[in-house]
Amino acid sequence: MMKAHTTDTSNIEFSMLERSKTKKTATKKLKCSVGSRIFDVFNVILISFMMLCVLLPLIHVVAASFSDPVKYAAHEGLLIFPEGFSTKAYEAVARNKNIITGYMNTIFIVVFGTTLSMILTIIAGYVLSRRNVGLNRFFTILLVFSMYFDGGMIPFYLVVKGVGLNNSIWSLIIPTAVNTYNLVIMRTAMSSVPESLIESAQMDGAKHWTILWKIMVPLVKPTIAVLVLFYAVSNWNSWFNAMLFIRDRAGYPLQLVLREILIQNDMSMMTAGAGGDEFMLSETIQYATIVVATLPILAIYPFIQRYFVKGVMIGAVKG
């Protein structure tokens, strides 16, 4: 059908060749302004609506966190501006030592976890991107198979426990150190570096270790930046493994503390010293907690957004 259509129109186009160019564009514009204009307007409205859907709950969170707890309780629907003004909720959050230790633990995990992940991913990516390495095919199959078939939660739990990492902060770093998907991205980036660069360095007597850190790494910096962000965000967000492995409250990462406050509604730590309107306060405390826990990421987000987008695009290249 499509074919018939195109030949038809091209014939018409042919017969109309004598028409002047300006006239042609004029008619085209006219054609656009009928159905197309309506679509454009509709499109802008639809996308604006979606933006509102994303933003309204977030605005509500910020507004509610600064609201007066008593006035907030009487309110219905989503807020755009705070109802009254109070920083009681934030004072309560500041009293909660768990949030501070949670932050500390999470920062530790993000910094050391991401560093370890990157070192391993860079090394493995380099080796796998080399040609003429006999076992590379075997390694690749070994790695990729684990992407599609995994042992599942219980055996994983038993292995981590068996290795002796249970209840240690390292259980949140080592068992998830390498992400195969990220490793494939790294390998793809490194195999696109011209082989001649590596060969000439080898000719000069450089060992692989030196070539990797002195030549390869500077050349794939953009990919490294992207993967650092990927690992950092997944470390920041992860809570499930912490729930499996961490028993002591002092070892809880931030997300697990948040789970207690937001999901399990456990705010005894914070409302204890607040006096009478404990119940009223609890909801605004939850909002204040969300703000405190999300603000750092959202504050740097606009500056790193383009790296993330680039990362998804790198990942899209089939490798």
């Binding site: 493995a124 380099y126 684990s146 042992g151 055996p155 038993l158 150190a177 390498v178």
Partner: peptide
């Protein structure tokens, strides 16, 4: 390639322990 094999050894160990270990553990 012995240098390369030495370099990737820890990663292979990692995969054997934390990805294939659980697969073996599925025998339970």
């Amino acid at each position: 390639n012995w240098q390369l094999y030495l370099m990737i050894l820890p990663i292979i160990m990692y995969y054997l322990i934390f990805k294939y270990g659980p697969m073996f553990g599925l025998s339970i």
